[in-house]
Design a protein around this nucleic acid. Sequence first.
DNA 1: TCAAAAGTGTTGAATGTACACCCATGC
DNA 2: GCATGGGTGTACATTCAACACTTTTGA
Lengths: 230, 230
Amino acid sequence: MTIGMQVDQRVSLAVSTVIFALRPHPSTGLMTLWLPLVRRIREPYEGQWALPGGPLEANEDLAASARHTLERTTGLTPNYLEQLYAFGSLDRSPDDRVVSIVYWALVQPDEVARAVDGENVEWFVADELPPLAFDHSEIVTYALARLRAKITYTPIAYGFLPPEFTLAELRAVHEAVLRTSLDPANFRRQALASDTLVATGTYLQGTSFRPPALFRFTAGAPTPLPEERR
Amino acid sequence: MTIGMQVDQRVSLAVSTVIFALRPHPSTGLMTLWLPLVRRIREPYEGQWALPGGPLEANEDLAASARHTLERTTGLTPNYLEQLYAFGSLDRSPDDRVVSIVYWALVQPDEVARAVDGENVEWFVADELPPLAFDHSEIVTYALARLRAKITYTPIAYGFLPPEFTLAELRAVHEAVLRTSLDPANFRRQALASDTLVATGTYLQGTSFRPPALFRFTAGAPTPLPEERR
DNA sequence: TCAAAAGTGTTGAATGTACACCCATGC
DNA sequence: GCATGGGTGTACATTCAACACTTTTGA
């Protein structure tokens, strides 16, 4: 038998991050989820797109590692960061054995973002990705599912919004993420009833219609466990 | 400065499992959550109780590792197994750097279970644990929260039940896990409406009252991602 | 005055909760 | 019969979805 002859090697540990941001879709113009990918510059999967990440440093928290990756590839600080899952199948990488702890993050793409862009980093529409290296396609699918599920029962939308925002903007985030249209009246009531918003008392000026009230999220940041709390 | 002088060492990767089973509470006699712990036989935390687990073998899936731990400590096969979280704070272990990927499992304690018990393994009431080694107390707290949350919206209760069961038994599982009493009539309707049960057509005999119908779960096993699917 | 979005009201369906009540069995 | 849990019915409250309608602004 020549099966199972592979040499036992050490397991290496990496941290990758699925970074979500909202931008207009290139063809429809509608707000859509985007995420940055990194082009691999060595084998395996050389030339293919992959999630940003890297090996876990010995003096780094898991979440800290995710944050560093984020800083390095986009120049941004996450508004929300949560552990997604640890992937450790034996066949994830053709030669070596890698366990990846994957995080997902929400960011607001400022001008800064586009600046750091370029090199081997490129943003893609999250639902229209090219084939990715390793099992990264499955990972993104899972991250998308988690985001879409979670936005319906927790106030993560703030991850895509500035500190103050109108209910229309909040609704637009939900609509973009969920790819549906939501009834403004009902959405408003639910949002207010959820007790996660406070009216700032100020109103957005400069609109060509009735000035909408500005809101702020109450809780600081509802994040998961230990390193990021849950 | 003598701070930060610690030598950079390699990060090691372990897999631990929080194993839940239902047994009567020793004082009240009510069904309660129990879990097995292992007494540490070396430093750090020598003599203290800890979650069962071990280093990840290079030729082992994450879930497979959890399953092996389970087999080793309890002699049981899990009815349900799901990844909980990856813990990786820098200060989890006093000397070395360990990242633990933690799973949680549901088992039925047969006679077998008690046989393998003993040695350095002992079962405890999940809500009345002694102080544990490392950050294992927090981990258990989190696992308990996840179990209690998840049983309300997914049919995990089957993890504690034999293939065929009455609605009273199913309800007893929910009551034990959630530590509440549930209205039999309403519980029945919700359970049936959830579309996860089928009546076997048979009835439990030998009761001193009206024989209850026996049910079976429909879906095979709704588990999470890759290795265990989600 | 008009268009457009903000914001309020109303109605009917669906769901959840409390609890009364009948059913089938062993003793 | 009677006690006991199995199983059904019902009425009320709460929540959710659809949509009509009023309000406030800029142009």
